[in-house]
């Protein structure tokens, strides 16, 4: 176990180092002067540009700038934004990350149980009618871009429901926009979370259920299943006690991978619904050319992804005694 952990940690730090190097140099080596952008583009005078250069420490050699930047990032000093009236980058990113995490949480709570059930049904009834229906449904949903499903939910579900008589009678509407205050509490935010979370659920649903289905089918073919059935153990407990226990093991990893997926998907979903999360912040930061903010956001998402992967590896190893931890 120790050796395994050590190897995973070395991999983790190495990957972290290289991705931080890439994030820094990609944004710095590209032609174009960040100081000039901050000073206001072509109209800025040479003095203004020079002043901003020295303020940002852009006169130091690049390797030293990288070390300073990474040190500041790890130390929690992420600088001030240009785009959002000089707010503190870290406060801004932490607040938006919490919002995105709430959205992701609701999406996972909706999608994981639902896709497990669908995947298990499809796997147990391989190539029968339920399987064909579920597979066709998930295949067409997984291929739709998030903005198409998102706009469908806004324009057809939310607006259509809002116009219907039933909504008036029940007095219950879906908000068609999720542009809530960024610092709202979870319960205030919850009504605005349902539709974007549902859009994210559709993306995850197909992915998790297809892998669950594959796991169930593979386990059903094993000898121990036949042995258990021949011993006279009822079908139901063969499935629940033996097949599902083994088939659902890889799902831990799948959920971790789907968080990586979710980060990309949330960028689009948050933009479509106008939700104040990390993804919509990233788009705003790029549009307003706020380099430091962009770098910090990308670093935060890489950190989240690497930690979930590390955690998934450890959880998988802990749950599965068959894995040789050498």
């Amino acid at each position: 176990m120790l050796k395994f952990l050590r190897r995973r940690f070395v991999f983790f730090f190495f990957t972290y180092l290289i991705s931080s190097l890439m994030i820094f140099f990609l944004l710095r080596v590209l032609p174009g002067d960040p100081a000039r952008v901050i000073a206001g583009g072509r109209e800025a005078t040479a003095e203004q540009v020079a002043q901003i250069r020295s303020e940002l420490g852009l006169n130091a050699p690049l390797p030293q700038q990288y070390v300073n930047w990474l040190g500041n990032f790890l130390g929690g000093d992420w600088g001030k934004t240009i785009a959002f009236r000089g707010a503190d980058n870290r406060e801004l990113i932490v607040q938006r990350s919490i919002n995105s995490a709430r959205l992701a949480l609701v999406a996972l709570l909706l999608s994981v149980p639902l896709s497990l059930v669908l995947g298990i049904i499809a796997g147990l009834r391989e190539n029968k009618l339920p399987d064909v229906i579920i597979s066709l449904l998930t295949l067409s949903v997984v291929s739709l871009p998030e903005f198409v499903t998102g706009l469908f939910l806004i324009n057809i579900v939310a607006l259509g429901w809002g116009r219907s008589k039933l909504a008036g009678a029940l007095g219950w509407w879906f908000p068609s926009s999720s542009a809530v205050r960024a610092n709202a509490s979870f319960s205030e935010m919850l009504p605005a979370l349902w539709l974007p979370a549902f859009a994210a659920t559709l993306v995850l649903l197909a992915y998790i259920s297809r892998l669950t289905r594959a796991g169930v089918i593979e386990e059903l073919k094993r000898d121990y299943v036949r042995a258990a059935a021949l011993k006279g153990i009822p079908y139901r407990s063969v499935i629940t006690r033996h097949v599902l226990r083994n088939a659902l093991l890889p799902t831990v990893t799948v959920i971790a991978i789907s968080i990586t997926w979710l980060i990309s998907g949330l960028v689009v979903i948050e933009y479509v619904f106008g939700f104040p999360g990390l993804g919509s912040l990233l788009i705003a930061a790029i549009e307003r050319r706020d380099l430091l903010l962009v770098q910090s956001i990308v670093m935060v998402s890489v950190t989240v992804i690497l930690f979930t992967n590390l955690f998934a590896d450890m959880a998988y190893a802990a749950l599965n005694p068959r894995i040789k931890l050498g």
């Binding site: 290289i18 991705s19 990609l26 944004l27 174009g32 990309s264 050319r289 998402s301 890489v302 992804i305």
Partner: peptide, 22 residues
């Protein structure tokens, strides 16, 4: 490995956004 740790869409947005503004 490190490149694949950055979500594709995020990397694409960053690269396109910066190159287009030059």
């Amino acid at each position: 490995d490190a490149l694949l740790a950055i979500p594709a869409l995020v990397l694409a947005l960053v690269l396109v956004g910066i190159i287009r503004n030059l």
